[in-house]
Design a binder for these strands. Structure first.
Length: 152
DNA sequence: GCCAACGTTGGC
DNA sequence: GCCAACGTTGGC
């Protein structure tokens, strides 16, 4: 059992979109970074905990809790020439990009980025690291426990 | 809109 | 394989 933080732009897919999706589940489309892909492919298992983070928005921060709901499989948007996530260099035979399904668990009062930075216990969180741009980052069990018991 | 930081691309 | 140029991310 591992823990992750996954960034999403709320205009595209917010915690409310997830809560209202069929089966409260969405495929995590659009990851086009190898490190993030590898976390999904090599690190994630069904049932892993997910901190659902809103990014590139007026109030960035953790907006809810979710769970990994599938193992990794090819992201269909890479094959769709009309999609902004289309990748002409990928092929059905050797898909370059993968995704996992994510299922809603709980909406929480937003924990703003600035609030995360206030806690000594969270100072090493990958998402808070200088210059971090990864859309998926591992979360330690201690960080997960602190956030879900103290900040939620 | 700015800009720091980082990943990717492509010429050599 | 190096590395400069470029594009993207994402907070502010």
């Amino acid at each position: 059992m591992r823990y992750w933080l996954m960034k999403s732009e709320p205009d595209e897919a917010s915690i409310d979109h997830l809560a209202n999706a069929a089966h409260r589940t969405l495929p995590w489309t659009g990851v086009r970074n190898y490190q993030a892909r590898n976390f999904m492919r090599d690190g994630m298992q069904i049932g892993d905990g997910v901190l659902f983070y809103h990014s590139s928005c007026p109030e960035p921060g953790i907006a809810g809790l979710a769970e990994v709901a599938s193992t990794a499989y090819p992201d269909p948007t890479q094959f769709d020439s009309k999609s902004p996530y289309y990748d002409p260099k990928s092929s059905q035979e050797t898909p370059r990009w993968l995704l996992v399904d994510v299922v809603f668990k709980k909406k929480i009062p937003l924990i703003p980025l600035a609030a995360l930075r206030e806690h000594e216990e969270l100072k090493d969180m990958r998402v808070l690291a200088r210059g971090n741009r990864l859309s998926i980052t591992p979360v330690t069990e201690a960080e997960w426990r602190f956030i879900t018991t103290r900040l939620v």
